[in-house]
Simulated scan of single mutants.
Amino acid sequence: MSSATALGTDWTDRILELEVGPIAHGGHCVARSDGRVVFVRHALPGERVLAVVNEDGGGSFCRADVVEVLEASPFRVEAPCSWARAGGCGGCDLQHADPAAQRSLKADVLAEQLRRLAGIERQVPVEELPGGPLGWRHRVRLAVDEQGRAGLRAHRSHDVLPIADCPLTPPGTLPPVLEHGFEAATEIEVAVDADGLVHVGDDGPVIQRAAGRQWELSPGVFWQVHPALPDTLAAVVGEWAHAPRGGIAWDLYGGVGLFASVLADQVGPDGMVTVVESSRQAVADGKAALADLPQVGWRVGRVERVLGSLGPRPDVVVADPPRRGLGRELVDALCARAPDRVVHVACDPAALARDVALFAERGFRLAELRAFDAFPMTHHFECVALLVRD
C-alpha cells in the first residue's frame, strides 16, 4: 500500500501530470503517480498529459480524465463529438484515436486478456466492418431525466446529458426524437430498421434482415446494433459450426434464431436444432421468422436451468452469452455433454479469455479466433472463438 493510500488521501479533483502507459480493458490507459495506478480516460499510450482525478475510492488506484495533452500520440485525432471529453458522455472512449489505431488498441487488449487469463500467446487483428466509424449504431437506448428530456448518460454516472445528436447513429435519426418530451426518469429505445425507418419506444414491429431471412421484431427484442454484424457473425458461425447433415446442434442464448437459421440449413430436415432463450417475446418472434424450419425447436428459460434436459449429445454448440460469459458451471455442464465443437460468441474479451481457460481444463483447445470492430469509437468489440475437443 502506498503512503498516500495509507494516509487515506483523497485525490479527487487533483490535477496529475502523467506518462501514459498501455491500453487496458475498459477503455482507459494505465499510468502511475506516487505509487498508485491511475486509470486515465481519453489518453493514448505514450502520451504525456494533464488529467483530473474524478473518482478515488481510497485504494491502490484512482480514475482520471485528460484535460490537456502535453505530448500527443501520432495516432491522436480531433474527436468528432464535443461530448467525447472529460465530464462528457459515457458511450465513447476512443474518439480521440484514429480508427485504425482504435482497432490496434483493441487487439492489444484481446491479446493481453488471453495471455493473462488463459495463458495463450496470440495476436488477433480486430477486423473493420463495412460502413465506417460513424453512423453505425442502429439501436440506442436514451435516458430520460426528471424534466422529461431524453439524452445519454455521463460516464459512470446516472446524470443525463442534454445532447442534440449522436454521430454514432445514422444522420438525422436522433434530433427529431430529442425534440419530444417523455415520461420522466424512464428509458426510451430508438431503433433503425433494415429499411431505414426509425422506431421509438413501442413503435414496432422492427424489420431486420440477415442470413438471407427477414425478422419482424417486437419492441425491445434484441438485435445487434451494428447493421453489418448479424451477417458477419452468421457467416463465421456457419463456417465453424460445420454441423453434420442429420446432426444435432444447440443454439444457446439464441435470441430470435439468427444462428439457428444457419445451423438448420446445415443439419437439414432430418437433423435437430434446439434454441434456448430466456425472452418469451424473442422466442415468439423467432418462431414466426423460422416457421418454415420444423427442425428448429425452442426452449424458453435460462440456459443453466434448461441445459440438463436438452436431450441427446449435440454435435455442435453455439453460445452467445451476455457480457459476463459462460462461467465455470456452464462450461463444465457443456463439456460433460461432449460436443465435437463449441462456437463461442463474446462481446467481452476478459469473459471470453476466462471461458477459454475453463474449456482448456476440460480438454477443449482454442482452434480459431476472430474479432470484429462492431462498436467503433468505443472500447467494445465482438469476438468469435472455435473450441474443439483434443
Rank of each mutant, 00 (worst) to 15 (best):
S3M: 15
T5Q: 15
T5I: 14
G8L: 14
D10V: 10
T12G: 01
R14L: 14
I15A: 10
I15E: 13
L16A: 07
L18T: 00
L18W: 06
V20S: 00
G21Q: 05
P22R: 07
A24W: 00
A31I: 05
R32A: 15
V38W: 00
G46T: 06
R48N: 07
N54I: 07
D56S: 08
C62K: 04
R63P: 09
A64C: 06
S73V: 11
P74E: 14
S82G: 13
W83V: 02
A84W: 01
A86Y: 08
G88S: 11
G90N: 05
G91I: 03
G91E: 02
D93K: 06
L105N: 02
V109I: 05
L110Y: 09
A111H: 07
Q113M: 15
R115G: 04
R115E: 05
R116C: 12
V126G: 02
E127W: 01
P130C: 06
P130S: 05
P130L: 00
P130N: 03
G135P: 02
R139S: 12
R139K: 13
H155Y: 11
R156N: 01
L161E: 02
P162V: 03
P167L: 02
T169K: 05
T173D: 10
T173F: 01
F182G: 00
E183G: 13
A184Y: 06
E187V: 13
E187R: 15
I188H: 06
E189Q: 14
E189P: 02
D193G: 15
A194P: 01
G196F: 12
L197Y: 09
L197R: 15
L197D: 13
G201K: 02
D202F: 05
G204I: 03
V206R: 00
V206L: 06
L217C: 09
P219G: 13
H226P: 03
T232L: 07
V237A: 07
W240F: 15
A241Q: 09
P244C: 11
G246T: 10
G247C: 07
A249C: 06
D251K: 03
L252S: 12
G257L: 09
S261L: 11
V267A: 04
D270A: 15
G271D: 05
V276T: 12
S278W: 00
S278R: 07
Q281T: 14
Q281F: 09
V283D: 05
A284S: 04
A284C: 09
G286H: 12
D292M: 04
P294A: 09
Q295T: 13
V296I: 10
V296F: 04
V296R: 06
V300Q: 11
R302Q: 14
G311V: 00
P312R: 08
V317N: 02
D320P: 07
R323D: 06
G325N: 07
L326F: 12
G327D: 05
R328F: 10
E329T: 13
E329C: 11
D332N: 13
A333D: 12
L334D: 07
L334G: 00
L334V: 15
R337W: 03
A338L: 12
D340T: 13
V343L: 09
L352A: 10
A353H: 10
A353V: 06
F359D: 04
R370Y: 01
A371S: 06
F375Y: 15
M377R: 12
H379V: 05
E382M: 03
A385P: 07
